[in-house]
């Protein structure tokens, strides 16, 4: 680990000042410290934000508000989460381990870095770690990589489970920076790799994630998160799907679907959603929608299986949601 200086801040203003001077925020540290030890991340100055009063989880009207420093475990177990958006709890509990969920924050979860093995191998070419060096995954071991949103420069998936649920729920982020405060959809936090895979998110330098807002959904909402992976727990997704259905009188009034493990960012399936509107919630309709989800998929040498797995995961998740009381 390279040497760094550090400071603890107590207010958002102090945090913003420290970041404007080039400091890097430290929350739970479960991504950042890991990558600093590998010398993939080399911040010179750490700003410990854990003392900021941003860990609150609360309802405002029927919106759910989650502070950026709330821990994954606390959000997953909070009565307001379970009342308003159990999908969020489900996605959180499918991620990482109990120990990690006790330490890891919501803001840090959204900004966690990719799990592509070459990103961590300092002797391998990787455009994300070292722009212009090439992508070792494209001609290498890529069974875990993306089939959607890839470029010839990077094919890594975004690893967060929570982000998939938040994108399906149309959640927004409130951030504060040197230029003031702004809010935008969680979906817009994530960039496609394009020619600049080293740029992963749309925060401006020094911007602090303050809060996540999850708006109320339509009534009779049925929502599930389904994660498919190599072992039953403590593993990143091969494919995951969050679905939110509004079904009345045996008709789908609205559907929201997002997938993880398949895209270079959490992937919203808008064509599939549109195809479900007005349909009866049966397997035939679900399969047709899933077919639209894989349109445009570009599998790599090692991950053709993800096309079929994505179809099936979507169908299964829709069935699970449809079956909810």
């Amino acid at each position: 680990m390279f040497p760094f200086s550090l400071e603890k801040v107590r207010t958002e203003d102090e945090a913003l000042r420290a970041a404007a001077a080039g400091g890097r925020f430290l929350a739970g540290g479960t991504t950042l410290i890991d990558l600093m030890r590998e010398e993939i991340e080399q911040p010179r100055h750490l700003v410990d934000i854990n003392a900021l009063p941003l860990a609150e989880i609360r309802a405002e009207g029927s919106d759910l508000l989650i502070g950026a420093l709330a821990r994954m475990a606390d959000v997953a177990g909070h009565p307001e989460t379970l009342r308003l958006h159990p999908l969020i709890a489900e996605s959180l509990l499918e991620g990482a381990s109990p120990q990690l969920r006790n330490a890891a924050s919501i803001g840090g979860n959204l900004l966690q870095r990719v799990r592509c093995p070459y990103f961590r191998m300092r002797d391998a070419a990787c455009n994300k770690r070292m722009p212009g060096t090439g992508c070792s995954a494209i001609g290498g071991l890529n069974a875990g990589h993306a089939i959607l949103g890839t470029s010839e420069h990077c094919v890594a998936t975004h690893p967060s489970d929570l982000a998939v649920a938040l994108v399906a729920l149309d959640a927004t982020l409130r951030v504060r920076g040197p230029e003031g405060e702004r809010s935008f959809p969680v979906e817009d936090l994530f960039r496609l790799p394009g020619e600049t895979p080293h740029l992963e998110h749309t925060l401006m330098p020094g911007e602090l994630i303050v809060e996540v807002r999850v708006p109320d959904g339509p009534p009779a909402r049925k929502a599930r998160y389904l994660k498919v992976r190599d072992r039953a727990s403590y593993e990143f997704a091969l494919v995951s799907t969050a679905v939110v259905l509004d079904i009345q009188d045996d008709r789908i009034l609205s559907a929201r679907i997002a997938a993880g493990g398949v895209g270079t960012r959490p992937w919203r399936m808008r064509a599939s959603e549109a195809a479900l509107i007005g349909k009866a919630p049966v397997r035939e309709a679900f399969s047709a929608a899933a077919e639209l989800a894989v349109r445009g998929a570009r599998p790599l040498s090692g991950n053709h299986y993800k096309v079929d797995l994505l179809r099936r995961t979507i169908v299964r998740a829709l069935e699970m949601a449809g079956d909810m009381a």
Partner: peptide, 27 residues
């Protein structure tokens, strides 16, 4: 592992279990 992947370093901090390898003492 020293990477948060095995749990051998589990300790309780203020009663909660965490991986001691992925957190800094000064925190």
């Amino acid at each position: 592992c020293n990477q948060g992947a095995c749990g051998a370093c589990t300790v309780l901090v203020d009663g909660r279990r965490i991986n001691a390898c992925l957190t800094l003492a000064f925190m």
